[in-house]
Amino acid sequence: MRKLATLIGVILLYAACKNGGTQATLPIYGNRDTKTITKDGKQVVDTIYQTIPAFRFVNQYGDSITQNSLKGDIYVADFFFTTCPSICPIMHRNMLKVYSEFKNVSDFKIISHSIDPKHDSVPILKKYADGLGISGNSWWLLQGKKDDTYNLSASYLVRRPEESAKELFIHDGYFVLIDKQKRIRGSYDGTDEKDVARMIGDIKTLRAETNPQIAQ
């Protein structure tokens, strides 16, 4: 009887260890559709996932940035404005940790969309980047047509920003993780240190994922 208990114990322990050892795959978020394609002469049903559509913005260096600038990259996107008195300082205090962790990784980027392009000109964004202490091309602060930015927010499944008299702008504090196929793989509360730590773990998981198909 005692031997049996020990045996069960060992099996349970092994199962627990094995479970912890395997790396989970991140879910794919957003709407999905199906398409019938012909593969090797046979008709098969393929899943079409929601992806981030094409865009064109300018970064803090005045360079034009489009979806192609992020080709082959995993990236995190957020929405902010430089004069934001509420959640943005917390978000970017947390984002700095993400930046430090991955700044030397060639296939990872951070993009922060300004929702106040009227104030946040390229020189203002550069000054903000210098103040944050970020350099190089691993974290871009983007600005462009206000409507383009606001419309794009819907593709990231975050709340559309709004202007208000008191808070100036109302927006979400989410960090959205996008894979190399431009699909949404995670959404995290950028104001929560623990959730951002979870995101750092998820970025590592996503980078380890092998998928040769990269969206054009």
């Binding site: 008195p85 300082p89 205090r93 210098d130 103040g131 944050l132």
Partner: peptide, 15 residues
């Protein structure tokens, strides 16, 4: 706290 942080650490060269 939003700007100056839980430990009064501020934010880089911004705050």
């Amino acid at each position: 706290q939003n700007c100056h942080g839980t430990k009064g650490e501020g934010l880089s060269n911004l705050i």
